[in-house]
Design a protein around this nucleic acid. Structure first.
Length: 486
RNA sequence: GCCCCCAUCGUCUAGAGGCCUAGGACACCGGCCUUUCAAGCCGGCAACAGCGAUUCGAAUUCGCUUGGGGGUACCA
């Protein structure tokens, strides 16, 4: 199997890349890398009406972001190009003509209107909808007549009327279809573009694709493809139909399930390595316990045998957990770099404190172990960057404390802290712990009040470290502001 | 409707006849640690869709039922 493995990711540029499509790309990529084969990207832009402008760029950026490099395809070329189907139209029409001359395909002049009505009628009569093969056996004269009427025909495949088509799916085992359930499907549309069926079969053959790993939604078109391979005299590749990715309600993943585009995950601050790890585990597993696998380990251990046959639901909670694991595993430098685009995200323009790089470097360790996404970092660190803290004043008065004792605590703290020379976590603790005792407060009460005064929240990184990073002046100013509220 | 695929905790999954009173992870609930929150550690909750058959023995094999998904386009 080695050496000859050539797989492809063949998205159609009709929108932004969906996590389901990306998962398919990932499996193909892992398979190629595991076997030392080639990973090819081919753009299936054969539907002119659904084409979306920046889609190709979005797809390629998504792959790049996840580190899924391609050996042949857009931007990198390759000897089997072009890799855009819209640039290969002559190839498809030539082969479609060949099928006609062989008697395996025919021109069909039926109008979309007639097809639509016919189907409506079939559904009404509870018949399986399908083309009635009206044009399958047109005589030369009848065809000439249609041509003079100026109708541009489509080319349809002449599906066998009997027998069966079977194949061995690498994931699902043997699958059998009766040929009489296969329609005379269209190969070439009237606008001269091929349908997916024709184009993918031709290109997979011409590009010497060895394995087609695609989502399960393609399973029922596979017999048509096999019939085409046979008619064209091509040897078919091996097929493996991957389990689908479903939304939380078990229906096909779509926009109403929240984020579905890979770009959204990038924007929300998921790390590509976490995304790769998580996606790899959707439909594939190494064993009964391994959850965290590096890219190298994935490549090493990936195999078709361990792909499941069951559709999977995209579980956001688990992704969040995993992303947190990856964030915590970052070095300080890596985290600093990763967080740059997100840091000032929800801080109103003009309100941000002028902060040095060193200040940011001091803050980050306090945030790193608490964030599950990079976007969350901005939220968790916000109070470090703005002085106008917005909080409910009553939070300053902790559990079992009186208004008066809160004031007293803040004043005492203010007084002690202003006398403090070294404003590091150790010194702060050395002063504040005894102070609690002195005031007759539990440490939790004093620290709680101070925490709210200094951060504006009841949940924050450890108090002394936080105060040390904020610095003496800023802390005193915030305590002053808190007192003014009481 | 018809065709195809699938079926283990809420979710992702391990399990390829006895190792299963079904394992791991996320989530959830307790506890420990602790100045709060996280993290970490310990513990708990929670599943073999149903019915038949094969077998000494079935989550694992077979059949049926049910349920879910996909396809059924001049979309991919």
């Amino acid at each position: 199997m080695n050496k000859s493995v050539r797989v492809r990711y063949a998205p159609s540029p009709t929108g932004y890349p969906h996590v389901g499509n990306i998962r398919t790309a990932l499996f193909n990529w892992l398979f190629a890398r595991h076997h030392g084969g080639s990973f090819i990207v081919r753009i299936e832009d054969t539907d002119v009406t659904r084409k979306v402008k920046g889609a190709v760029k979005g797809i390629l950026d998504g792959l790049r972001w996840l580190g899924l490099d391609w050996d042949e395809g857009p931007e990198v070329g390759g000897k089997y190009g072009p890799y855009f189907q819209s640039q290969r139209l002559e190839i498809y029409s030539e082969l479609a003509e060949r099928l006609i001359s062989q008697g395996d395909a025919y021109y069909c002049y039926c109008s979309p209107q007639r097809l639509k009505e016919m189907r409506a009628e079939q559904v009404k009569r509870k018949q399986p909808p399908g083309y009635d093969r009206l044009c399958r056996d047109l005589t030369q004269e009848e065809r000439a007549q249609k041509e003079t009427e100026g109708i541009t025909p489509v080319i349809r495949f002449k599906a066998p009327l009997g027998g069966q088509t079977r194949f061995n799916d690498l994931i699902r085992g043997e699958v059998v279809f009766d040929n009489n359930t296969i329609d005379d499907f269209i190969l070439l549309k009237s606008d001269g573009y091929p349908t997916y069926h024709l184009a993918s079969v031709i290109d997979d053959h011409l590009m010497e694709i060895s394995h087609v790993l695609r989502a399960e939604e393609w399973l029922s078109s596979t017999p048509r493809h096999l019939l085409l391979y046979r008619a064209l005299g091509f040897e078919p590749p091996q097929f493996a139909h991957l389990p689908m990715l479903l939304g939380s309600d078990r229906s096909k993943l779509s926009k109403r399930h929240g984020a579905v585009s890979i770009t959204e995950y990038r924007e929300q601050g998921y790390l590509p390595e976490a995304m790769v790890n998580f996606l790899a585990l959707l439909g594939w597993s190494l064993d009964d316990r391994t959850e965290i696998l590096s890219r190298e380990e994935l490549i090493q251990s990936f195999s078709l045998e361990r792909i499941s046959r069951t559709a999977a639901i995209f579980n956001r909670d688990k992704l969040n957990w995993m992303n947190g694991v990856y964030i915590r595993n970052l070095t300080a430098v890596q985290f600093f770099e990763a967080v740059q685009p997100y840091l000032m995200m929800n801080i109103p323009a003009g309100e941000a404190l002028i902060s040095s790089e060193n200040y940011v470097r001091d803050i980050l360790p306090l945030i790193q172990e608490r964030a599950r996404t990079l976007a969350e970092v901005a939220e968790l660190a916000q109070f470090f960057f703005i002085d106008q803290l917005d909080y409910e004043s009553s939070l300053l008065v902790g559990k079992d404390m009186s208004h008066q004792s809160a004031i007293q605590a803040l004043e005492a703290a203010q007084q002690r802290l202003s006398q403090l020379e070294a404003f590091d976590a150790g010194s702060l603790e050395g002063v504040l712990r005894p102070l609690a005792v002195e005031l007759g407060l539990k440490t939790g009460q004093l620290f709680g009040t101070l925490r709210v005064a200094v951060t504006g929240r009841t949940a924050a990184p450890p108090l002394f470290q936080t105060m040390a990073v904020l610095g003496k002046e800023r802390c005193l100013r915030r305590i002053e502001a808190a007192l003014a509220r009481l």
